[in-house]
Design a binder for these strands. Structure first.
Lengths: 231, 231
DNA sequence: ACAAAAGTGTTCGCCCTACACCCATGA
DNA sequence: TCATGGGTGTAGGGCGAACACTTTTGT
């Protein structure tokens, strides 16, 4: 048996990527959803997606789709899962690899107004989606929760400078339950991975709230020595 | 734009599944590895795998590959990840979905002697593998640890009746560190998900160790009410 | 009688949780 | 001056970690 015969005659498949794009704005977790511009299911709500090309990895394809939709590059992305049911796409047999992305809406929302038919929707506003995209979102939320629990990925959703109230709101949104203000501050500050800035954010209170910055270097130093982020 | 033109002209890909098959025998965690029977890389060490056919889901393909290699069906399997780098397979561009399986070797090892060129190897015996299979195994081990931590999947590796020493050895192997005997017993028994049997296993001591059985019904009842397995 | 694994309780410290009031400031 | 969100400390309980001796029985 030689190389040619081993790979010859093997069925080939359409392989897609679908992106679950999370953002955080006005203390609310949001998802970027589009109205489908192609048949079948034209006009219905859908995740953004596209097909994997010959000379690109699946991760590259996901990054490309994200870039084409939002204009953004160098965004946090992680693979969610492969969805491989035969009948999952009603137009053809398509195997899809889902990725989820975390975007700093506050720093980037101007880019999105360029009209790709994309909409930021809050979790409770998500309509019924085509195919198994609803399932993908549910899986992505679960993975986001698990991931946020033990890794400092929440900062990917916040602007570089943020208040502790914003950070707490973010985790409250992710976990969908309230967190005690004092305990949260105590825990996150005790980790020693936040840099307190002199600046204050006065947009949400008269008193003003201190801004903080995530100290990635410091986190990575600590992580090397066995420190485990947990919130 | 109609259905035909949307899917037409899109590149198609070879899609494979690779299986990381875990077993537990003689207090050691083991992996099922084969010597490759096809070109390229004939004779080299490899995970078991195969191509996804037209009318089967990726999960079905993984189950089929497992069945063809071991003769076993209805085995615990979970998706690990999709490996989609362009150059990962040196013979052709192949996108691979990796699954990991947990097998009760003690109850099934007779089946494996049918000679598919498969070998059970301990973790420290694993040779260099083709392609990115080494990475897949590392990822699978990490996922197995994470998963075993909060879900009672360890029992999938043990015979129906097992001793607490066996169970502890299993977790020591998975986590690669020792666990305190008393604390382990206390914790696992306090969950109330093990049924203590009258029988004793006398193969490893003169005194004999009580056999236990995992009470899945009971676990699922508790899980519904918010109980979280953790070990 | 002895070797070898099974089985058994207690103490201590840490972390998580619950909880209520003062502060600073713009309007 | 008052309304609004920012910021602070403590006490109690539960849980995980450390730790050593007795039991059983086949040889």
């Amino acid at each position: 048996m030689d190389t040619t015969s081993f790979y010859a005659g093997v069925p080939r498949h359409l392989v897609a990527v679908d992106c679950i794009i999370f953002g955080f704005e006005n203390d609310r977790l949001k998802l970027l959803i589009i109205q489908r511009k192609v048949h079948p299911r034209l006009g219905e709500w859908s995740l953004v997606g596209g097909f994997v090309q010959e000379q690109e990895s699946t991760a590259d394809a996901a990054a490309r789709v994200l870039r084409q939709t939002t204009g953004l590059q160098h965004i946090y992305m992680d693979q969610l899962s492969c969805y491989g049911e035969v009948e999952r796409d009603t137009g053809a047999r398509v195997i899809s690899i889902a990725y989820y992305a975390l975007i700093r809406i506050m720093e980037h929302d101007h880019i999105l107004s360029e009209g790709h038919g994309a909409h930021w929707l809050e979790l409770h506003q998500i309509p019924e989606l085509i195919f198994d995209h609803g399932r993908m979102i549910a899986d992505a939320l679960k993975k986001l929760r698990d991931n946020a629990h033990f890794h400092p990925i929440g900062f990917e959703l916040l602007p570089e400078k943020f208040t502790l109230s914003q950070l707490r709101s973010l985790y409250e949104e992710i976990y969908q339950h309230e967190l005690d203000k004092r305990n949260f501050r105590k825990k996150i500050l005790s980790m020693g991975i936040l840099e307190k800035l002199e600046e204050k954010d006065k947009t949400t209170s008269k008193k003003g709230a201190h801004l903080y910055r995530f100290d990635k270097q410091q986190y990575e130093q600590l992580a090397k020595r066995g420190f485990v982020f947990e919130i």
